[in-house]
Amino acid sequence: MEFFFEVLIGGLLSGVMYALVALGFVLIYKASGVFNFAQGAMVYLAALSVVGIMEWGAPLWLAVILAFAVMTAFGIGTEKFVLRKLVNQPPIALFMATIGLTFFIEGLAPMIFGSDPRALDIGIVDEPIPYILENWNMVISKFDLVAAGVASVLVATLALFFQYTRIGRALRAVADDHQAALSIGIPLQHIWAIVWGVAGFVALVAGMMWGARNGVQFALTFTALKALPVLILGGFTSVPGAIVGGLIIGASEKLAEIYIPPVMQDLFGGNFGGIEGWFPYVLALLFLLVRPEGLFGEKHIDRV
């Protein structure tokens, strides 16, 4: 039972890391109704900016500020050169634009900062907490707990921002209908620039946490793969949904990885395992059948 709880808690903490990436998707989707394919690449760009700027001699705090400036400039540039031309176009056109953006970032970022995998030390050691290890014989990492704290603060801030600020309400209006929002005087261009900037900030936080955990390298773009089932579960438009979805996916995939393969081996023989790559997608697929809008997503009721 002790082992079960160790796996469960470890999974929940991993899920928080997925939620950090999923948040960026939610932000863009809420503001434009578009699935931002480039979010994984943005995580890579942000983390690479931090280590790249540090290699030029800047301390961590300055590198983070400058990387945030890079992400903000990127957000404004995206609005000006990509999205502005696509106002009121079908969502698929915007989606395709974000695919192009992905390849652009994946080519440009290593060109500027180099493609060598690098370490990112943010001063938090990824080691078990001795007290928990000694008293409960469970491995709970300090780093994972800090990541959980960061994600909680981020989620709370963003939820309040969307719910209670003018810009937050404007964002939701824009997501519902670009043209209608424009007609009542909502400055669409500013709104998009702001939301892409905030998504850049979320990518920076996610990039730093994932980069400190596994190193800063091209594989950071793959973090997006972990965020997709989280979004399906939590709902594409819900900030709290991202974190709840993350927790469910993280815990279930770890428990599945531990407990399903032995059962499969007993039943069919052979060597099973490595199922956490596809298990979250199967779970998300099953969830889609029951609740297509996700746990916290907005339900669309169309008049026929």
């Binding site: 999974g11 994932w210 594989a219």
Partner: peptide, 16 residues
Amino acid sequence: QIPVAHPGNEQNAQWL
């Protein structure tokens, strides 16, 4: 034998 799914950026369960 313990497999790790591609790309391998999550190995919590395997190491537990």
